[in-house]
Amino acid sequence: MAMLRNITIGQYVPGDSWIHRLDPRTKILATMALIALLFLVQSFPGYGFAALYVLAAVYVSKLPPRYVIRGLRPLLVIIILTLTLHIFMTDGRVLWQWGFISITWEGLVRGAMMGTRLVLLVLGTSILTLTTSPIHLTDGIESLLKPGKPIGIPAHELAMMMTIALRFIPTLLEETEKIMKAQMARGADFESGNLLQRAKNLIPLLVPLFISAFRRADDLAVAMEARGYRGGEGRTKFRELQFAVRDGACLAGVTVFTVVVSVLF
């Protein structure tokens, strides 16, 4: 039953490239700059520059390109769907027609643009998650959200939730596997039948799993309280994030690049 084993959370690939060593906040901001750029530019040269930005990042990160490309796989369906919709549904100069189906020049152009936009978006965010461990990502998000606290953004609580989720996902997966084996030993069948039947067969799996998850949550809350937890107030951090010179340089470069490209194209 290896099916649950090969789910890894996050896809972090340890390394010590220049990008790996950047502060997580820098990487999150640079990714957001890419997203902004992709929505601001409206022409092929603009996408060309955005592609260059992503390629440069892949190169500097020293990640094997196939790792980065693998990030596209789960979104392949959405990308193809977007592409088809745009190609067939846009009015304009007809290039090819068969019955009521037609391909237009404008459709091709828009399809290509939307496709490129999506692909670059996914590649860009993959670089972020591939070069940043979940812990650092959490720290970065918490630190970036902290200024939003006066307007009610629960930065610390969100980070705590992410940490606990990351901590318990492997534990719960292990438990699921255990319960599944126990049920299978008693003749339960999780692998055949139609969709509805299979969903029904999952009930004896989900009920004990939920009960145990609530029990764990209860225990954990008591343990956290016993260890003096009382929310984010007055709490210090074990690892403090520190902007280095390279972070400043990177952010300055990214800002200039984003502004110039989006103004010009």
């Binding site: 979940p134 812990i135 940490t163 606990i164 990351l166 901590r167 534990t171 029990r215 764990r216 225990d219 954990l220 343990a223 956290m224 260890r227 003096g228 937890y229 009382r230 007055g234 709490r235 210090t236 951090k237 074990f238």
Partner: peptide
């Protein structure tokens, strides 16, 4: 299983002192 909070051992041990504001 139900009393460790963090994703690595050292982070978890740091949880108490963090709460104390060390």
């Amino acid at each position: 299983d139900n009393q460790l909070v963090a994703t690595t051992v050292e982070e978890d041990v740091a949880f108490g002192p963090e709460n104390l504001g060390v």
